[in-house]
Amino acid sequence: MSNEAPVRYKVAEAARLAGVSASTLRLWESQGLVVPGRSETGHRQFSVEDVARLKRISWYRVERGLNPAAIREALEGEEPPDNSEVTAISDIGRRLRSLRHAASRTLDQVAGDMGITASTLSTLERTSQGVSFKTLHDLAEYYGTTVSRLSGEVSDGVPAIVRSGEWRTWPETTPGVTVQLLAEGRTMMDCHRFVLAAGATSEGAYRHEGEEFMHVLSGRLELVLDSDQFFDLGPGDSLYFESRRYHSWRNRHDGETILIWINTPPTF
């Protein structure tokens, strides 16, 4: 049995993970939509389950346009949580830890190879939180796998149709970056819906085999290829490029940027 304490987030951390502002989170608390725990000193503490609830509240508010009373009613009418999101968060950490153990590597050794601190890697293995998108990609490459597989995306017996708003979401390893699955199963394409909070970035360039296509639905994205080709993409813009080219990106919009992002073959 693990003696590790449950993960708890402060207001700013929970807001960032949920893709909303701290003031919005406090407003929702005042409206009774979420009730965080308290530390011994009285400070708010949000659990992983609270963050999952915040994401549902945001979806009802943005996608359905519901008011607080309607959101509260919708949340109460949902099936009791089965902790699937909590399981997903712990699963990706366990996968990374299992891969490290299989490679007979210590935290210090892998962290040194990745250019990160051992404490950062330890936190990632426990909570799936706290690293850049580039670091997550580099770790997957280091272990000879892909980010999609680490996130539990590849599975059998999944439906061919994914309904609007019912997208399964990757564990949110990088603050402000939400990746939702538009197609599941053992496909020849990774089909994702990216939701980038203001200021979200890959925090560095990465590359892999294959080709990729992106189409911006809203907001504004800056994509940089090979460190010297800059593309400013707005709503309705698309871009196709070879994945072996180094690419980095950031949300240039003062709000969310949402885009469709497809990789083939599924090497990301």
Score class of each variant (00 low, 15 high):
residue 252 R to F: 13
residue 228 D to W: 02
residue 229 Q to Y: 08
residue 241 F to E: 11
residue 251 N to T: 12
residue 247 H to A: 03
residue 218 S to I: 09
residue 252 R to L: 15
residue 256 E to Q: 08
residue 220 R to T: 05
residue 240 Y to W: 06
residue 221 L to C: 05
residue 234 G to H: 13
residue 242 E to P: 05
residue 221 L to Q: 09
residue 222 E to Y: 02
residue 244 R to E: 08
residue 218 S to L: 12
residue 247 H to F: 04
residue 240 Y to H: 05
residue 253 H to Y: 15
residue 243 S to T: 15
residue 244 R to H: 08
residue 221 L to I: 06
residue 235 P to D: 05
residue 221 L to K: 07
residue 247 H to W: 03
residue 224 V to W: 01
residue 237 D to E: 11
residue 222 E to C: 05
residue 245 R to N: 06
residue 230 F to D: 12
residue 219 G to I: 14
residue 224 V to G: 06
residue 250 R to N: 03
residue 255 G to I: 00
residue 248 S to H: 07
residue 220 R to G: 00
residue 258 I to Y: 00
residue 222 E to H: 06
residue 228 D to H: 08
residue 219 G to M: 10
residue 248 S to I: 03
residue 237 D to P: 06
residue 247 H to L: 01
residue 231 F to P: 02
residue 238 S to M: 14
residue 242 E to R: 12
residue 227 S to Q: 13
residue 225 L to N: 04
residue 223 L to I: 08
residue 237 D to Q: 09
residue 249 W to M: 14
residue 258 I to R: 06
residue 231 F to I: 01
residue 241 F to Y: 15
residue 244 R to P: 00
residue 224 V to E: 09
residue 230 F to C: 12
residue 242 E to N: 07
residue 236 G to F: 15
residue 240 Y to I: 04
residue 254 D to Q: 14
residue 251 N to K: 09
residue 229 Q to L: 11
residue 222 E to D: 04
residue 246 Y to H: 13
residue 242 E to L: 07
residue 229 Q to I: 07
residue 246 Y to F: 14
residue 236 G to C: 10
residue 224 V to N: 07
residue 253 H to W: 15
residue 246 Y to R: 10
residue 258 I to H: 02
residue 256 E to M: 03
residue 245 R to T: 00
residue 247 H to K: 01
residue 240 Y to G: 00
residue 235 P to S: 10
residue 220 R to P: 00
residue 231 F to H: 13
residue 223 L to N: 01
residue 257 T to C: 08
residue 240 Y to K: 00
residue 224 V to S: 06
residue 240 Y to T: 06
residue 235 P to T: 08
residue 221 L to S: 04
residue 258 I to T: 08
residue 234 G to Y: 12
residue 233 L to E: 12
residue 235 P to R: 08
residue 227 S to A: 13
residue 254 D to Y: 11
residue 242 E to T: 11
residue 246 Y to W: 13
residue 219 G to P: 03
residue 218 S to Y: 07
residue 217 L to T: 01
residue 249 W to P: 14
residue 218 S to D: 14
residue 258 I to E: 08
residue 252 R to P: 11
residue 219 G to A: 11
residue 222 E to I: 07
residue 233 L to V: 11
residue 244 R to L: 03
residue 248 S to Q: 13
residue 235 P to A: 13
residue 246 Y to V: 02
residue 258 I to G: 01
residue 227 S to Y: 15
residue 235 P to K: 08
residue 255 G to E: 01
residue 257 T to M: 02
residue 220 R to V: 03
residue 242 E to M: 05
residue 233 L to Q: 12
residue 243 S to V: 09
residue 221 L to T: 05
residue 258 I to N: 03
residue 242 E to V: 09
residue 228 D to N: 09
residue 238 S to F: 12
residue 219 G to K: 10
residue 235 P to Q: 09
residue 227 S to N: 11
residue 244 R to Q: 06
residue 224 V to L: 05
residue 231 F to Y: 11
residue 250 R to Y: 06
residue 254 D to W: 10
residue 228 D to T: 12
residue 246 Y to N: 12
residue 217 L to C: 01
residue 253 H to R: 12
residue 237 D to C: 10
residue 231 F to M: 02
residue 225 L to K: 04
residue 255 G to L: 00
residue 217 L to M: 03
residue 218 S to M: 13
residue 229 Q to C: 11
residue 239 L to P: 05
residue 239 L to Y: 10
residue 251 N to V: 12
residue 224 V to I: 15
residue 238 S to H: 14
residue 254 D to R: 15
residue 240 Y to S: 01
residue 248 S to Y: 07
residue 235 P to Y: 07
residue 257 T to E: 04
residue 236 G to W: 15
residue 257 T to R: 03
